[in-house]
Design a protein around this nucleic acid. Structure first.
Lengths: 350, 350
DNA sequence: TTGTAGGCGTTATCAT
DNA sequence: ATGATAACGCCTACAA
């Protein structure tokens, strides 16, 4: 790599002068300026960002820590974080914790294992002297690993924090559950089954709350027997479909498109038609939803908005334009989900 | 961040001594060793990787440049690259070029735009002084942007190079095309349509070649009229299905699962059943394939093997155990695709 | 056994 | 207008 010093030598000037020219400092003679610029171009000199950071303690670089880039929700957020940062003249760097790839779901409550992976990633970003950090979670929960001083501005994307210093940008699960249930109700359904994710999961709880609210507003009695919990996957959907169908529901709201896939499986096995005999609604709007037959009505996750918002807030923090939460309550920014109507929820006579 | 110097001060020793202790150098009194180690632990000191690299010109860090992490094939490769590197004690850092997100496909032949994005990423990695680089391409083609001195070991994943210094790890498209066509033939089909990707695409050409070979071996006449080209997407599949069905094929091999989705669409529209009236085979084994009805028979991309192999080769290069290609021919490592039999190809009487 | 000096690439400060 | 110096955090060679 060509260095400043080499350029300086070749031009018979000091490194300082070259640096000044490159950084647009005023007091330089036009003559030296041109000479230096010429050599810089010819030699293809590029500054070493890291050395700059070492000196300036500012890098105009944002660190992104992803819990797992293979989680379906992650690339969309990262993409929009990067787009925004780039627009604002910030570089980005990604650290991938690979949490799910390593341990499936067994890390959720294993703080020690978790930290053994998180710490090196943080250390790497601190070493690079990134100006700020966005933590992209794989699923919503309260992450309290941010208490100790991060020594840099940070934003949590897709999960909650208990630190007032770290704003959280999350999806509005409750509104999502509300909207889709309201839609199902609007199609005339009254006996509606629900297949949630794991019962203790934040997404599950909030979506359920929203759904209940919609039912309450429509004066439809909430029947706990019609609520089942799964593990977010296709098999769970299949398994939980039976009791619900047996109970005579006319529609099933699944809190994940993939679980809806399992419901389709069960329906097919019974010779029932999704969207006709039994309506199905999903959540997530994963790519698969469009390939279901009939195509799946679902809620779209506002991934790119979350990424955008997170980056926006982080840069504000960095510029000192962000007022920390007053009174020690963590700031929480909710971004709404969007209903995507396709073909899997049919209209019925009430 | 706590620094070496601070630790040294607190212990009343020199930075050298602390450094020596931390790096396991021999000549240190047990007494100072314990004292220092204690303070290191208490203050939570962590070495600055970057400063180490600045000094050592070695970081035990691998840079990954992804053309777009939102390409479906990319996370799988990155995941396995990281797993392997970590196992070998290397850290990784990702740069995402976001090529498709920026420009869809219009960058393919716009070298200037391409370089304006590639260069900063390379620069960043050079600044960090990564020990090597894996470039994860979004689709196969010959990438000749590696001629100029990269000044570090590099491996190309999922695309080809024309530089003998950069080994390429690619999928065996020809074998893939061959295997799946052979399977379709084995199910009794003789009138087989093919929907390729873009006609000038390497994947398309090689898979077609393999398919032709299988047909030749089975003594089935190759009919150019039964070969159509699409744009890898669902719409193309839909569009190209009609002429093929009209021509009376009994099976269609689509070079992308998503195009197969389009074929399913057309079939449904015609009241035809995939896998019964017309068989369909895909390629890629994307997540969607399993949700098709009937589930799609397809070729699985060896993404994790490609990542693994790429990382393996790169670390060999770094350790000087990799002999560069002799005679200026680029090295090319092919990794085979795997047939995944599901339900979309039915058996028929020949 | 421990410490000093120098340098990795850059820039701010303070001369000249 | 230009340059010498020091410093960012770390490590290695060499000196004490």
């Amino acid at each position: 790599m060509v260095t400043l010093k080499e350029i300086a030598q070749e031009c018979n000037v000091s490194a300082t002068t070259v640096s000044n020219i490159l950084n647009g400092k005023p007091k330089v003679s036009e003559e030296t300026r041109l000479k230096v610029l010429d050599v810089v171009k010819r030699r293809g000199y590029q500054p070493n960002y890291i050395a700059q950071g070492l000196r300036n303690q500012k890098t105009r670089t944002i660190g992104i820590i992803a819990e797992d880039i293979a989680q379906f929700s992650t690339p969309g957020m990262i993409e929009s974080i990067m787009a925004f940062c780039e627009e604002k003249g910030y570089r980005t760097i990604v650290q991938n914790l690979r949490l799910y790839a390593r341990w499936q779901e067994s890390w959720f409550n294993n703080e020690e294992a978790y930290r053994s992976v998180l710490e090196p990633a943080l250390q790497e970003l601190r070493s690079i002297k990134v100006d700020g950090l966005i933590y992209v979670a794989g699923h919503a929960r309260i992450i309290h690993f941010f208490k100790e001083d991060l020594s840099m501005p940070a934003v949590m994307a897709y999960a909650y924090t208990d630190s007032p210093a770290v704003p959280a940008v999350v999806i509005e699960d409750e509104q999502g559950g509300y909207d889709i249930m309201k839609y199902v109700l609007s199609m005339g359904h009254r006996r509606i089954g629900i297949i949630g994710g794991r019962a203790d999961n934040i997404h599950t709880k909030k979506r359920l709350l929203g759904a209940q609210k919609a039912m309450f507003e429509a004066q439809v009695l909430y029947n706990p027997d019609w609520v089942r919990y799964g593990a977010w996957d296709r098999d769970s959907g299949y398994e939980m479909a039976k009791p619900l169908i047996d109970a005579g529901v006319t529609a099933i709201f699944c809190m994940a498109d993939r679980m809806a896939g399992g419901v389709y499986d069960y329906l097919e096995e019974c010779g029932l038609k999704a969207g006709v005999d039994v309506s199905v609604a999903g959540f997530d709007n994963q790519d698969v939803a469009e390939y279901f037959r009939p195509a799946l009505t679902t809620m779209a996750l506002p991934l790119s908005e979350i990424g955008h918002k997170s980056a926006e807030i982080l840069l504000k923090e960095i510029d000192g334009e962000w007022k920390a939460a007053s009174g020690g309550t963590p700031v929480e920014i909710g971004v709404p989900c969007t209903l995507v109507v396709r073909k899997s929820v049919g209209k019925i006579e009430a």
